[in-house]
Amino acid sequence: MNTYGRFPIALERGEGCRVWDSEGKSYLDFVAGIATCTLGHAHPAMVQAVTEQIQKLHHVSNLYYIREQGELAEWIVNHSCADQVFFCNSGAEANEAAIKLARKYAHVVQEIQYPVILTAKASFHGRTLATITATGQPKYQKDFDPLMPGFEYVPYNDIEALENAIGELDEGNRRVGAIMLEPLQGEGGVRPGDLDYFLRVRKICDEVGLLLILDEVQVGMGRTGKLWGYENLGIEPDIFTSAKGLAGGIPIGAMMCKNSCNVFEPGNHASTFGGNPFACAVGLAVGRTLLAENLLQNVQARGEQLRKNLRALTKKAPNVFAEVRGWGLINGIELHTTAGFSSIEIIKAAMDEGLLLVPAGPQVVRFVPPLIVSADEIEEATDKLERALSRL
């Protein structure tokens, strides 16, 4: 179906941070499957995990215990604030699971008949009916109404608006039960959360008895320079989700929570493919490799290098670029509305130079390379971007 606005190339193979198209042209990949190929392409650890697991057991059913699933869940619990993990296949599914858990918690613990989940304007939480409703961007919701009830929106990083919304919605049987936020808004323009804002949100949730859900589909698994995005904000969520980078490009999603809010029972939620041995074996290999190869330190160093280079570029073209934002290796450069061209036009020009980039809205170019990216590749990418801009 014609549901994607594709660029006119077909990619055939990859190695490290590079991919090649069907014509043999090489590209430096700063898209990484949209923040997904954690270890780049054809990483030996992934090749080994895929090869070994497919020869043993790739899928059974959650009717039985799955050793690989247990090992990945144990790894996540040991390296996060979570106590429990539910596995699925995508970020949208992980967020659906979080929404369902929050709703059941609202009914059986908070005793709310009509619970509301507050989300942020400019957020993105997925493409299913519930998650596009949670998404605070009307363009994703157009023509899909009636939307799922039970969501309200507030400006991101605006604590006064959040507090006002909680108070205004406290009416009879309809009350706020949870707050769902991204630690850094990805599709919303690469906008990091403010530390003071999230500290206050956590305090409000504790005082009022609300659940805090963090959508880490894009920022989790080392993307920010820390294993989880919430670690940049000095708080712990009650529930958080992961997907994109969790198995380095093999489809997987996960919803994690603390014991205090785990009200799911057998039959409440399920997934045929979720937590299958194949995806979990690769996810475990990715997690172990992240730590064994000290990739979090690389993410921090390469992220600082990239932002420094992009800020130097803004000084050369102050009429084009307004701001550089990001954490680790999720970064965006915002164009002035008067720049004369859009993020897509920059991306097309960069593609001609052999650099793959991805937009985050019409005015932001996003940089999300594999976490193994080298210092030389950062320099190469910014050189290619500068050449692309000179052509525009």
Results as ranks from 00 to 15, higher is better:
residue 112 I to S: 00
residue 227 L to P: 13
residue 358 V to G: 06
residue 200 R to W: 04
residue 62 N to I: 14
residue 73 A to K: 06
residue 26 S to F: 02
residue 253 G to T: 09
residue 5 G to L: 15
residue 234 G to N: 02
residue 15 E to K: 14
residue 291 L to T: 15
residue 205 C to F: 02
residue 290 L to Y: 08
residue 125 H to R: 06
residue 305 Q to T: 00
residue 89 N to G: 15
residue 273 F to A: 11
residue 245 G to V: 00
residue 115 P to D: 00
residue 366 R to Q: 13
residue 246 L to H: 03
residue 381 A to C: 03
residue 5 G to Q: 13
residue 211 L to F: 05
residue 74 E to P: 06
residue 79 H to C: 09
residue 351 M to K: 07
residue 363 Q to T: 13
residue 181 L to F: 10
residue 353 E to A: 04
residue 215 D to A: 05
residue 295 L to V: 11
residue 175 R to E: 00
residue 288 R to A: 08
residue 390 S to G: 12
residue 208 V to T: 11
residue 172 G to L: 01
residue 27 Y to N: 00
residue 273 F to Q: 12
residue 44 P to F: 01
residue 342 S to W: 02
residue 17 C to T: 00
residue 204 I to E: 03
residue 164 N to K: 15
residue 66 I to A: 01
residue 85 V to M: 06
residue 352 D to P: 10
residue 288 R to V: 09
residue 306 L to M: 10
residue 336 H to L: 10
residue 190 V to S: 01
residue 219 V to N: 14
residue 195 L to E: 09
residue 129 L to D: 14
residue 33 G to V: 05
residue 257 C to S: 11
residue 50 V to D: 15
residue 200 R to A: 10
residue 274 G to W: 01
residue 71 E to R: 12
residue 387 R to W: 04
residue 118 L to Q: 00
residue 8 P to G: 11
residue 66 I to P: 01
residue 45 A to G: 09
residue 290 L to E: 07
residue 342 S to Q: 05
residue 384 K to G: 00
residue 215 D to E: 06
residue 151 F to M: 08
residue 246 L to A: 04
residue 350 A to W: 01
residue 161 A to K: 03
residue 236 E to Q: 14
residue 199 L to E: 10
residue 35 A to P: 03
residue 93 E to H: 14
residue 211 L to P: 05
residue 207 E to Y: 11
residue 148 M to G: 08
residue 43 H to Q: 06
residue 339 A to T: 05
residue 195 L to H: 09
residue 71 E to A: 08
residue 275 G to M: 06
residue 343 S to H: 09
residue 344 I to Q: 15
residue 107 H to C: 02
residue 195 L to Q: 08
residue 21 D to G: 03
residue 25 K to L: 13
residue 316 K to A: 10
residue 225 G to D: 08
residue 77 V to N: 08
residue 312 A to K: 12
residue 323 E to H: 12
residue 267 G to H: 07
residue 214 L to W: 04
residue 81 C to N: 14
residue 294 N to L: 10
residue 53 Q to F: 08
residue 26 S to W: 02
residue 43 H to S: 04
residue 315 K to S: 14
residue 73 A to F: 06
residue 292 A to R: 12
residue 262 N to Q: 12
residue 62 N to Y: 11
residue 379 E to P: 01
residue 276 N to P: 08
residue 345 E to R: 10
residue 6 R to W: 15
residue 239 I to T: 10
residue 213 I to G: 07
residue 84 Q to L: 13
residue 88 C to N: 11
residue 247 A to R: 04
residue 273 F to H: 14
residue 180 M to P: 01
residue 326 G to K: 04
residue 252 I to A: 12
residue 299 V to C: 03
residue 74 E to S: 14
residue 253 G to F: 07
residue 232 N to T: 14
residue 298 N to E: 05
residue 356 L to N: 01
residue 61 S to E: 07
residue 301 A to Q: 12
residue 141 Q to M: 10
residue 365 V to A: 07
residue 150 G to E: 04
residue 194 D to P: 02
residue 196 D to Y: 12
residue 104 K to P: 07
residue 109 V to W: 07
residue 355 L to S: 00
residue 275 G to D: 05
residue 15 E to I: 04
residue 314 T to N: 09
residue 238 D to E: 09
residue 22 S to Y: 02
residue 250 I to Q: 10
residue 29 D to H: 00
residue 356 L to I: 02
residue 119 T to G: 01
residue 123 S to A: 06
residue 31 V to N: 09
residue 235 I to F: 03
residue 322 A to C: 13
